[in-house]
């Protein structure tokens, strides 16, 4: 019952608080132009290349950047390993240049490897606190990415050489990842360069491989 409640809350957060996934772009520049396109590359958690679009809209009395992003694992350009996010991001509280920024994303991702093919639905909630000025920003971030439901289809290889009775189907509450680190960026005209780096832990705070994330992004506002 507790698990179902957690999942329901996570789904509601994901559905209602749609915004940009990576707390990576400068909220102090939301007023400079409404639209943004961007690309990112990094270790997150595999080598991932992403492209995204965001648009700043007034909603519930705040400026929100709503957007969508798609990414694939860049190693061997493996399009079987992909991720799509619908996301929203806004400054929740601010005092002068100090902002508490909240973001949430609803995520679907897929993978195919030696032992299984999977599609997953999840949600990410991240908070960042720091200094956001029109020309630059620097913040610390902490977030949680929950794998809510995952559909697994086991490979012929796995069934033949390891476990013929492996169960295909929807698996509930398959995992979650904490991510915490720093993010920062500078603006050059309409362009913005941003970086993120930090550590990854499982939802039970166990080690992960790799134990860290890092990404570099370039965006343009228009």
């Amino acid at each position: 019952m507790t698990t179902m409640l957690r999942l329901a809350v996570a789904l509601m957060v994901g559905a209602l608080a749609v915004r940009d996934a990576a707390a990576q772009w400068n909220v102090a520049r939301f007023g400079s132009a409404r639209n943004q396109v961007y690309t990112t590359f990094g270790l997150d958690p595999a080598q991932v290349a992403s492209v995204g679009y965001g648009r700043v809209v007034p909603l519930f009395g705040r400026e929100w950047q709503l957007g969508a992003e798609v990414g694939v694992v860049a190693a061997h350009f493996d399009t079987r390993d992909y991720r799509a996010r619908l996301q929203a991001r806004a400054s929740l509280v601010h005092w002068r240049s100090l902002h508490l920024v909240g973001s949430a994303a609803f995520i679907t991702r897929g993978t195919e490897n030696t032992i299984y093919r999977a599609i997953n639905f999840g949600a990410d909630v991240t908070g960042a606190a720091g200094v956001y000025r029109p020309g630059w920003f620097m913040a610390g971030e902490f977030g949680f990415d929950k794998a809510i439901v995952t559909h697994l289809t086991h490979s012929d290889w796995y069934r033949r050489y390891i476990y013929p009775d492996a169960k295909d189907g929807w698996y509930l509450d398959t995992g979650g990842t904490y991510h915490y680190g720093v993010t920062g960026g500078v603006a050059i005209g309409p362009a913005e360069v941003a970086v993120r780096a930090g550590w990854l832990r499982t939802e039970d705070f166990n080690d992960l491989l790799p134990p860290m994330y890092a990404s570099l992004g370039v965006g343009f506002r228009f």
């Binding site: 270790l43 958690p45 595999a46 694992v73 390993d81 991720r83 991702r109 993978t111 490897n113 999977a118 997953n120 999840g122 990415d145 794998a147 995952t150 698996y171 398959t174 995992g175 979650g176 990842t177 990854l200 499982t202 939802e203 039970d204 166990n206 992960l208 491989l209 790799p210």
Partner: peptide, 9 residues
Amino acid sequence: AWGNQFLSP
């Protein structure tokens, strides 16, 4: 690394 997003160890 990618699989860790689907199934936490």
